[in-house]
C-alpha cells in the first residue's frame, strides 16, 4: 500500500467542510421551500452532496427554524436522529459546526441542519423541541466544549466530571495526558503546553 509514512509532514489543515451547492436542475424538496417561506432568512446556504440535503442556518434563527421544521405540515421532522459537531480550528467565521440530523417518521425524509459558531459563542439548546437532544448536547459539550444555553442538565457525560480539556477538538492530543496525569491530574493541559513551549525555546 502506498501510504504516507507516519513521520511525513501533515497535509495543510483544512479550513472547512466542502458544501457543494445543489446543481441548477435539482428539485428543492418541499420542506426546504417551506422553511424558506416560513422563517425569513433562515436558509443561509443550501447544499446537496450524495443525495443528502444540508441547510446552513444562522445561529440567531436556529430555534425558530427548528421549531418550523418540527411543526410545519410539509416538514414534520419529529425524530432527531443525531446531533454532533465538527471542529475546524483555523476557520475565520467560527470554529465549530454543530450538525443536526433530522428525520420524519411520518413523511420519511431526512435533512441535515448546520450552524457555525465561534469557540466561546453560546448556542441555544433544542431540548425543548426534541427531548432526545439532551444527551447528544451533553456529549457535544463534553467532547467539544460547545456552550448550550437553556440545557436542563449541562454536565460532562462520557468523561469524568473533573476532566480537563475537550477530547474531540483537533488540538487535543490523541494520547491524552499520558504520564502527566499521574504528575498533575488537574492541570495537565497547561503543564503540557508549558513543556512544549519550553522545548521550542
Amino acid at each position: 500500500m502506498a501510504e504516507a509514512p507516519e513521520h511525513a509532514p501533515k497535509a495543510a489543515v483544512p479550513t472547512g467542510p466542502v458544501e457543494p451547492a445543489p446543481p441548477a436542475d435539482a428539485v428543492v424538496p418541499a420542506f426546504i421551500t417551506s422553511l424558506q417561506k416560513g422563517v425569513a432568512g433562515s436558509v443561509a446556504q443550501l447544499s446537496l452532496y450524495l443525495g443528502d440535503w444540508t441547510v446552513i442556518v444562522p445561529v440567531s434563527q436556529l430555534l425558530q427554524a427548528m421549531e418550523h421544521l418540527r411543526r410545519a405540515p410539509e416538514c414534520v421532522f419529529d425524530y432527531l436522529s443525531d446531533l454532533t459537531a465538527t471542529d475546524w480550528p483555523p476557520r475565520p467565521e467560527g470554529r465549530f459546526d454543530v450538525i443536526y440530523m433530522l428525520y420524519s417518521t411520518r413523511l420519511r425524509h431526512r435533512v441535515r441542519v448546520k450552524v457555525k459558531i465561534a469557540e466561546d459563542q453560546p448556542l441555544p439548546s433544542v431540548t425543548g423541541i426534541w427531548p432526545a437532544a439532551n444527551w447528544f448536547e451533553r456529549e457535544v459539550f463534553d467532547m467539544f466544549g460547545v456552550n448550550f444555553t437553556g440545557h436542563p442538565d449541562r454536565r460532562r457525560i462520557l468523561m469524568p466530571e473533573d476532566w480537563q480539556g475537550y477530547p474531540q477538538r483537533k488540538d487535543y492530543p490523541l494520547e491524552g495526558p499520558g504520564e502527566l496525569l499521574m504528575e498533575s491530574p488537574l492541570d495537565w493541559l497547561k503543564l503540557r503546553q508549558a513543556r512544549e513551549e519550553a522545548d521550542i525555546e
Binding site: A11, A12, P14, P17, V18, P20, Y49, L50, D52, S81, D82, T84, T86, I99, M101, R110, R112
Partner: peptide
C-alpha cells in the same frame, strides 16, 4: 472531500455513521 450520514438497522436500532473526509 465531503461528508455524509448513513444509517442501518442494527439489532438495537438505528446505527448511523456521520463521516467527514477532507480529501487530503
Amino acid at each position: 472531500a465531503g461528508e455524509t450520514y448513513h444509517a442501518i438497522e442494527s439489532p438495537k436500532g438505528e446505527l448511523g455513521y456521520f463521516i467527514v473526509s477532507d480529501g487530503k
